[in-house]
């Protein structure tokens, strides 16, 4: 393999907007990401960053082109195989933290492991506590998601993204809703995880200051990669 964690070849994405008309949102995207790399994705609103992230995250399929995750072509995988691959290789952090409100912080962190194993266990609980400690929230485990500040919720979301020990974390404007200080600390948290455990990151951000602290910046404009 040796292809790195992620490889996109000529990826296009078109949406059907009323049957005869198709709108192509992504055009001929080529992109590679190495193991342990921390990549920033920038670009104006509507340029296709989230669309690209959804495709990389196996939530959506490209209209054409190839997507390889750890050297595996994903086009031939069925729905359940995609779900499995996603669960085991990719973690998500979204802009609007999107924790599950019926669950406590600890349970939210456990969720990906629980969905994978089927049953909870002491071991999963320990891992969740561990992750909460990593993001500095060990005392908030039993708080319901709704009873936490935005910054805290986003930390929980980061912990949750790391639960399955993914090779790649996709973060779509994770700091877009936070004040500068919280944004900075979330970013530092991700950077630290990246350094310590070699997890690759693909970070969509409008914050040039944060982007500059990444390994590489890629600009997406009108569905094309405009520059490095």
């Amino acid at each position: 393999m040796g292809d790195g964690i992620l490889k996109l070849e000529h990826v296009c994405k078109a949406y059907n907007v009323g049957l005869p008309t198709q709108v192509e949102v992504l055009h001929d995207i080529d992109l590679e990401l190495d193991h342990g790399e921390f990549l920033a994705l920038m670009g104006p609103s509507g340029s296709g960053k989230s669309t690209l992230l959804n495709i990389v995250g196996l939530l959506d399929r490209p209209t054409s082109g190839r997507l390889l995750i750890k050297g595996r072509d994903t086009a031939i995988l069925g729905d359940d195989e995609l779900t499995h691959l996603r669960g085991h290789t990719i973690g998500f952090v979204f802009q609007y933290h999107l924790l599950i409100s019926a669950f406590t912080a600890r349970e939210n962190v456990m969720m990906p492991m629980l969905a994978d194993r089927g049953f909870p266990s002491v071991e999963l609980g320990k891992r969740a506590d561990d992750l909460l400690r990593q993001v500095g929230l060990e005392r908030f485990g039993s708080n319901l998601a709704n009873n936490m500040s935005g910054g805290q919720q986003q930390r929980v979301a980061v912990a949750r993204a790391l639960a399955m020990n993914p090779d790649l974390v996709l973060a779509d404007e994770p700091t877009g809703n936070l004040d500068t200080k919280s944004a900075d600390s979330i970013f530092e948290l991700m950077r630290r995880v990246n350094r310590e455990s070699g997890t690759s990151f693909l970070l969509v951000t409008h914050n040039l200051d944060l982007a500059r602290r990444c390994d590489r910046i890629i600009q997406v404009v009108d569905g094309r990669i405009a520059g490095h």
């Binding site: 995250g57 939530l59 729905d79 359940d80 779900t83 499995h84 996603r86 669960g87 085991h88 998500f92 979204f94 999107l98 924790l99 599950i100 409100s101 019926a102 969720m111 990906p112 969905a115 994978d116 949750r160 399955m164």
Partner: peptide, 16 residues
């Protein structure tokens, strides 16, 4: 629906 989407993104299968 948002939470269901999140669960799916976290590796929860359709069957689950």
């Amino acid at each position: 629906s948002k939470e269901i989407g999140i669960l799916r993104a976290m590796g929860t299968s359709k069957g689950q």
